[in-house]
Design a protein around this nucleic acid. Structure first.
Lengths: 253, 253
DNA sequence: TCGAATTTGTGCGTATGTATC
DNA sequence: GGATACATACGCACAAATTCG
C-alpha cells in the first residue's frame, strides 16, 4: 500500500493554505520550526516540502529572511521568427518589447580582440584563439533583467569598419542583420539551438531568479548568403520570466 | 578560505579515474561502500558525487544493479524549419531521420472522440470538453525511442473524411500539413513554444533516460490560412538524446 | 555601528524502500 | 528467496545571510 511521504503531505497542506488565502502573495510564511511543530513533523520535512514548492515557483526562499509566497510574474513573450529578423531599423529584442507594449532596453559591454575559445571558434568557422569582438548583453523589460546574451563576431570581419563595435557608432542597437548590411554583408539565415539546463549561480543572481532554476540556453548563429558564420551568441532565457515562441511559416509547393 | 566540499573532491576523483581508463564505457563501478572506504569518506559523500556525474551524463545509475560509466550517445538532430514542413510526401520526423541516414519510424495510438482538456481547448480555440482526435506517438531512431508526442485535432474538422485518423487510411504517416491539404485545408504556419522542464517518471521509462533528466517540452500548434488552429501537440524531447535546431530564414526588405 | 538572534541553505549521516541478480 | 546495491526520506550540525535591538 503506497503511503504518501510526509513531505508531500506537508507540501499539499502549504499549497492549500495559500489557496485559502491564509497567506497571500508576498507574505512571509512562519519559520520552519513553527510549521514543523504545528504540523507535528520534523523541520526537515517542512524544508523538503518548501523546496518542492520553490522549484514549482509557488514559494520563494530568501536566505536569512524567510520563505515567501512568490508573486506570479507575467512572463515576457519572446517571438523568434523570420518576420522578427526583418525589422528595418530596430533590433529583435526591441520588436518583442514593442509588441508587449513594454519598456525594453539593454545594457552591453563590448571587448574587442578577444581570442576565440574552442567552441566559439567551431561555431564561427575560425581558428581557436583567432580574435573576436565579444559583447555581453543584459536585456531588461520594465527595468527587470529578463535575458542574458554573449555575442561573438570574428574581428577580421568588421575590423576597420564603422560597425566594429555592435553597440557603438552610427549603427548602434539595430541588430546584427542591419549592421552587417551596412558593410555589404547579407545575412541570409539564422540557426538556433535551444537547450534546457539549470541556471548557474552567477546567472541566477544577474536575472534575479532562484539558483538552479530552469533556463533555455540558445546557441544562435547568423550566416551570410555566402554560408559563412558572421555572428554567434549564447542566449540565456529563464523559464520563470520568459516564454520563447518560434513562428514557422509553412508553404506547400 | 573556501575549502572544496568532500563530495566535489570525490566527483573529481571519479572523473579522473574514468579519464585514466581505469573504468571504461559500460563498466560497473565498485559499490558505494567500497568507494567510500577506499577514499576515506562516508557512503553519502560518494552518493552525492555520483548523483552529480549522473546529472552530467557521465555515469548512469541502475537500481539494484550498480553505477555504470554511461556511453556517450550520439544525439539525434531534430531540425525544425519552414523547409522541413514542405516535405511533399513525408512527415517532418522522417525527413530528420533521412538527413541523418538513420532508420526512423514511429508507433502511434489514436483515440477518436476524446473530450478536450482545458489547456488543449484554449490552444485549439474550441470549447472545453469538445471532441478531439488524440494520437499518442513514440518516435524511434534505430529502434531506440527518442521523442514522445501527443497530438490533438478537433474531431469536427476531419469527421467523415478519409483523414480522420492521422495514422490510418490512404494518407497515413504523411504529416499534418499534407493530410489537411487532402481535405482542402491549407496550413499556413506553425507556432512552437519550447519549455525546459524535468522528465516525469513515466516519460523517463518510455524514453530510457534517467528520471528527472532535462527535456524540452514543445507546445506546437498548426494554423490554417484562415487563422484557425487545426492541430496542437505536446512534444517531449530529451536533451540527452536529441538536439533541437531551428532554422530561421532572414530576408531584408 | 555592531553583534546577537533568527532563518534559510548546505553537507553529511542513518534508516528504510525497492529493484536486480 | 536471499543478498546486494541503488533510491528515497528524514534528522542533525553548521554555514551564510538577514534582521533588529
Amino acid at each position: 500500500m503506497p503511503e504518501k511521504p510526509p513531505y508531500l503531505r506537508i507540501a499539499d497542506v502549504l499549497r492549500q493554505r495559500i489557496a485559502d488565502q491564509e497567506w497571500t502573495v508576498g507574505d512571509r510564511l512562519p519559520s520552519r520550526a513553527q510549521i514543523a511543530e504545528e504540523c507535528g513533523v520534523g523541520e526537515n520535512v517542512v524544508r523538503r516540502a518548501q523546496e518542492l514548492l520553490i522549484s514549482q515557483g509557488v514559494l520563494e526562499g530568501r536566505a536569512g529572511s524567510g520563505t515567501y509566497v512568490a508573486e506570479p510574474r507575467r512572463r515576457v513573450r519572446m517571438v523568434r521568427s523570420s518576420a522578427r529578423e526583418q525589422q528595418p531599423g530596430g533590433s529583435p529584442f526591441r520588436a518583442d518589447m514593442l509588441a508587449l507594449g513594454k519598456q525594453g532596453h539593454w545594457e552591453s559591454h563590448t571587448e574587442a580582440k578577444v581570442p576565440a575559445p574552442a567552441e566559439i571558434a567551431v561555431r564561427l568557422g575560425i581558428g581557436e584563439g583567432d580574435l573576436c569582438v565579444r559583447t555581453v548583453y543584459e536585456f531588461l523589460a520594465e527595468g527587470c533583467p529578463v535575458q542574458l546574451s554573449t555575442s561573438w563576431e570574428p574581428y577580421e570581419l568588421t575590423a576597420g569598419t564603422l560597425v566594429v563595435l555592435p553597440e557603438g557608432g552610427p549603427h548602434a542597437g539595430v541588430g546584427v542583420v542591419n549592421r552587417m548590411a551596412a558593410i555589404g554583408i547579407t545575412v541570409s539565415h539564422a540557426v538556433e539551438q535551444p537547450e534546457p539546463r539549470h541556471a548557474s549561480a552567477e546567472e541566477a543572481s544577474l536575472l534575479g531568479i532562484q539558483k538552479g532554476a530552469l533556463v533555455t540556453h540558445i546557441r544562435r548563429t547568423y550566416y551570410s548568403d555566402q554560408g559563412r558564420p558572421v555572428e554567434t551568441a549564447d542566449i540565456v532565457i529563464p523559464a520563470a520570466l520568459c516564454e520563447v515562441v518560434y513562428e514557422i511559416p509553412v508553404s506547400r509547393s
